[in-house]
Write a protein that binds this DNA or RNA. Structure first.
Lengths: 206, 206
DNA sequence: GATATTATTTATCGATCGTTCCATATCGTG
DNA sequence: CACGATATGGAACGATCGATAAATAATATC
């Protein structure tokens, strides 16, 4: 029978806080993108020696993969919370999503826009796997939104002639565009007006 | 009185075709972005020696600036042609713009999406000027679209309660999102359905 | 033809890239 | 306390980065 009690790993314990380091790395990759962020930048920002980062994450790509998960756990989860909230109507869920996108993308304390959209928009062939990692996250997020809309359609919360897949792709497209807008300096109010214009045309059931 | 006839510049004439080299450079920067495209890549792709590229464009940033103008002259001009066409109504102009975006962003012969949106989405502080160059182009394009909508509003082609500035930013946001969608593999038909959904609830005058 | 000017070719520059080696430090276990 | 295992700090690796120096070639002008 295997040991059930959690046992501490042998060897010298890690002195730096992994999540704290990842939080700093998230900011850097978010602001500068994958290839424009060097390991030297990450060492300087996190205060963790290069060898320690490599021991913990393997290589730069591995660190970036961990950064993706960290961003998803700390930002995406909050952004998509309305989609998960069973108390909200489909309209209210999408309204919440778009309004959270507006505030999150223009939040002063973090880089503008969405990490998932801008951190690896265009990369070298050597980093194609990195681009693919983020692409899969974006596609999964869109599928997640579409599933919510399909449940809403099944409940009669959408106009009968509305295709949830198209509507979901449309809303997702607007969020992606809002990220570019935020990067270009769009204010919270401007992003909210984009969200409002999207919702004003909501294809509700009659 | 100055010489009116065009006079050939002294010295050894340039042997490579500047526009042909820029066309190749456009593809590279479009696909990989500014920082992920190396001078070695550009030398290999254009067949022009590094020293010749530096003599012609100054440095990598200067080459990129020339690439921006080349893209604008060969792609953006075509994309925004409906906005300039005085024979089109405001609705028709925006419809033409969005449909050209759909086809251009998914054109098989070129990298997916729009160069202006993805070539420098996130860069290092050292290349901040490059990011700014593209940002100014994006903002100018949005202003250009908004001016067209304002003329349309003055002609009574928009609903009275529609703010042309907000509508223009909304349409521009959708185009930016469509570029991300195209990068993620959206097909022409999917992009067209996004355009259609945008146009279906056009705030026309009653 | 002499001279000035510009382009091309080749080789190479210092800086920085991601990554790793090595000696040392600190843990759990026997 | 000894030993294996893991982490750390610092130095350094080869490769590639953007950019340039030097020598040569090809043009216009005088």
């Amino acid at each position: 029978m295997t040991e059930t009690k959690a046992r501490r790993r042998a060897g010298r314990p890690r002195v730096f806080d992994t999540d704290a380091a990842l939080d700093k790395a998230v900011r850097l990759f978010w602001q500068r993108g994958y290839e424009a962020t060097s390991m030297a930048d990450l060492v300087a920002e996190t205060g963790v020696a290069a060898a320690s980062l490599y021991a913990a994450f393997g290589n730069k790509a591995g660190l970036f993969a961990a950064v993706i998960e960290r961003y998803a756990a700390t930002f995406s989860v909050h952004l998509y919370a309305p989609i998960n909230d069973p108390a909200l109507s489909t309209y209210e869920a999408v309204k919440g999503l778009l309004e959270r996108a507006a505030s999150s993308f223009s939040e002063p304390g973090t880089p503008a826009g969405c990490f998932m959209y801008s951190a690896a928009a265009a990369v070298s062939p050597a980093s194609a796997a990195i681009e693919c990692l983020l692409r899969e996250k974006r596609i999964a997020a869109e599928a997640f939104l579409i599933e919510r809309l399909q449940r809403g359609a099944a409940r009669g919360e959408l106009a009968a002639n509305t295709d949830p897949a198209v509507l979901g792709k449309f809303i997702n497209t607007i969020m992606e565009g809002m990220s570019v807008q935020a990067r270009d300096g769009a204010t919270l109010n401007e992003l909210l007006s984009i969200a409002k214009m999207t919702l004003d045309r909501w294809p509700a059931a009659i």
